[in-house]
Design a protein around this nucleic acid. Sequence first.
DNA 1: ATGGTCGACTCTCGA
Length: 253
Amino acid sequence: MKVATFNVNSIKSRLHIVIPWLKENKTDFLCLQETKVENRKFPSSYFHRIGYKVVFQGKGGQSGVAIASIREPDETSFGLDGEDEDRLIFTRFGDLKLINVYVPQGHKIDSEKFVYKLKWLEKFHEWLKSFDLKEKIIICGDMNVAPEAIDVHSPEKLKNHVCFHEDARKAYKKILEIGFVDLLRKMHPNERIYSFYDYRVKGAMEKGLGWRVDAIIASPRIAEKCVRCDVDVKPRLSERPSDHLPIIAEFLD
DNA sequence: ATGGTCGACTCTCGA
């Protein structure tokens, strides 16, 4: 089984990357964030044509999430406490629960949006605590948090950034402390591997000025079956790339 | 490295 997550920064502008990537990698599940498209304009037919089902929720303009899968989910729901439907999808495929999340970014640490981000992470944590950790659970997403110093290029300089501020890190790490395992970190304990390079930083990838804000985290029962978890840098080398890169995890069946 | 760029959608915002 293969699972992937990819913040595409507009699905309509990234079909030339996503569809060939999916055909090549044939993941069972692909979680997409920042689809930036309203539901009635979601390009479902592109997924159907290559043998995938797709569920999605978006208002257009910003945010928006989708899950492409070979099989149709047995259960699908959107949002957290009925809010932010375009930031979270819960799906169930048999005994596997798959969650796709786009955590609020937070703008600046002195803004209301950062307060909202912290509250959101707290609410997300509360919800995840209600799951039985013995179940098969996978959470994919753009967490908008780099949890550890190894996950950013300049920890000291970035300590007041909304994606590396101590409060955001603490709020996110409470989720991991429930017992969910960060698979990229499990498979690469000491490697600097980034999943995001800011468009605005010239030559960011060449200079190693990246962030690891995307993640696939899983309950122990799934994590112990993980044999591989990597960032795929190839999509960044395509024409009109996203500023994020896909993470792909492979599991023994 | 928040400034740059990029994508959505308007006369600008969010990331």
